[in-house]
Design a protein around this nucleic acid. Structure first.
Lengths: 182, 182
DNA sequence: GAAAATTGTCTATTATCCTAAACACTTCCC
DNA sequence: GGGAAGTGTTTAGGATAATAGACAATTTTC
């Protein structure tokens, strides 16, 4: 239910190899403060927690976003990438089975004339990618552009967007989006 | 410098069309508390801020991650990708100038024998990628594996890791990491 | 229009957090 | 062994935040 701020702080401090006193000095608080927080015997004010994190340094956003668990599978052979595409658009997904991941990384392949259609579904988050081969027309909000090999894009997923292969050859893209959409 | 917690809370409350008293009732705190917080006359404890946000409801992570601005550049020509690598490792970065982005997407190029060294710096977050050409030996924690074209990886950045081009040809990777490291 | 309800703000008291200093414990070093 | 320097923990007192309730201003209701 409630967040284990203390354990969280301790984990962060450990990650950076700092002692309570060392961190306290950098943050401009007393070591006792850090001890009490780490034991969850007090709930720090936002301002003091910020002071402490400034000593790391780490933002409040990162602190609360951070989650600490063990890493499951790390390596994925080509054959293990989940293929969730259809006939025109092939999507090969990294770490598909994994839950609680922060991103979706995909190898996308668009056949000539393939078109995602106007995506009015505005999911929140951000996505970006790099074009490997071929040409794709990307429309984001009002803007439109044809991108080729080496070109890239990055936008907030909330804005309606559309991919269309306008070339004669297949178009390949490696993309990433956060939070994961698959 | 310091985060405008009060203004932030007010914006969130407004977004949901709640009055101070209404939110206070849902959150189980007094309206005065919310008034004082919104004026930044106090810095709430994490526990009380959490109580307040539970009334919305919104997570602490979302609260601190939330930011209210417009999307800048979307398209990036090949030439616009920031190149921040050295002689052995070339890193072409998407959306480098952009601040407050959620991810870093990169086109990485490792020369033969290129080696990042044992990365003991444990930055938090997650990263993953897909190998385009060549072969790379990736070591994550205790595990090690040679990956080739089409293979992929995904792991928590906190775990010490190392990339080493063990082949005779250059190795190309498109990777993404969150939160952004550059 | 006036009463009633709803808004955000303010103040005195209570509850909580933060500090400073001491405590107990381990590790290192001669 | 015995300091000396490191670690995390604890406690009394001063600083800060949360509460309950009153206040003034606006909106609603009839």
């Amino acid at each position: 239910m409630s967040i284990d701020v203390g354990g969280h702080l301790k984990a962060v401090r450990m990650m950076y190899g700092l002692s309570q006193r060392e961190l306290a000095k950098r943050a401009g608080v007393t070591n006792g403060t850090i001890s009490l927080i780490e034991q969850n015997r007090v709930s720090p004010s936002v301002s003091s927690l910020k002071k402490v994190l400034d000593g790391v340094p780490m933002s409040l956003a990162d602190f609360f976003t951070l989650d600490l668990q063990e890493t499951p599978q790390v390596f994925y052979a080509r054959e293990e990438l989940a293929d969730i595409g259809d006939r025109d658009v092939s999507l090969r997904l990294v770490a598909a089975k994994r839950t609680n991941r922060a991103m979706t990384i995909m190898h996308e392949r668009y056949r000539p004339k393939a078109d995602t259609g106007a995506d009015m579904l505005s999911h929140k988050g951000e996505e970006g990618g790099i074009i490997l081969t071929g040409h794709i027309e990307l429309t984001v909000g009002g803007q439109s552009r044809v991108l080729g090999p080496g070109d890239a894009y990055y936008f907030a997923s909330a804005v309606p967007h559309r991919f269309r292969n306008v070339g004669e050859e297949p178009c390949e893209i490696v993309s990433a989006s956060t939070p994961p959409t698959f």
